[in-house]
């Protein structure tokens, strides 16, 4: 067993894990963060995407011990004070899902994409989420949702600039 100290969705945890424990299993089984799902188990589908130290990663392809000293954000930590993150709201409003299984990973990957590229073209969105598979929607409404969120987040960013 190895002891890890990790912040997950703003809460500090100290836990013993086996070195072979995958981050996704730690999140789901030890912390009960079942909002992060396991889709393919082969690093392809992206359903288990979380942010580790600010970057989107596939939590089935990271060891829990590698998150030691780090900060993890899951889909459960995205909403602030009960208000949905603009990306969550956009997926809801644009109906960027059907069965919803890929949605947590889609949202986490899309938030990461906008962090680096706040105003992506449609092509850049499609390429930016190439690591996330959706078998229902054909991606059309997912792309629209990311576009809407980009617009809303840019608007609130410029609103903050004006307040300054």
């Amino acid at each position: 067993m190895s002891q890890i100290n990790v912040r997950v969705d703003g809460v500090a945890y100290t836990d013993d894990v086996e070195p072979r424990t995958l981050l996704v299993h730690y999140l789901r089984e030890q912390l009960g963060k079942v909002g992060t799902v396991i889709g393919c188990d082969t690093s392809n589908c992206g359903a288990c995407t979380v942010h580790l130290d600010g970057a989107a990663v596939k939590s089935c392809t990271v060891l829990a011990v590698q998150a030691d000293g780090g900060e993890v954000t899951t889909i459960e930590g995205l909403a602030q004070d009960g208000a949905l993150h603009p990306m969550q709201k956009a997926f809801h409003e644009m109906h960027g899902l059907q069965c919803g299984f890929c949605t947590p990973g889609m949202i986490m990957a899309s938030v990461d994409l906008l962090r680096e590229n706040p105003n992506p073209s449609e092509t850049e969105i499609r390429e930016g989420i190439e690591g996330n598979l959706c078998r229902c929607t054909g991606y059309q409404n997912i792309v629209r949702a990311v576009q809407q969120a980009a617009g809303e987040m840019a608007g609130s960013a410029s609103a903050r600039e004006e307040v300054r």
Partner: peptide, 9 residues
């Protein structure tokens, strides 16, 4: 190479 999550690690 792969996708942005994989390229991050």
């Amino acid at each position: 190479v792969a996708d942005r999550q994989v390229r991050a690690r």
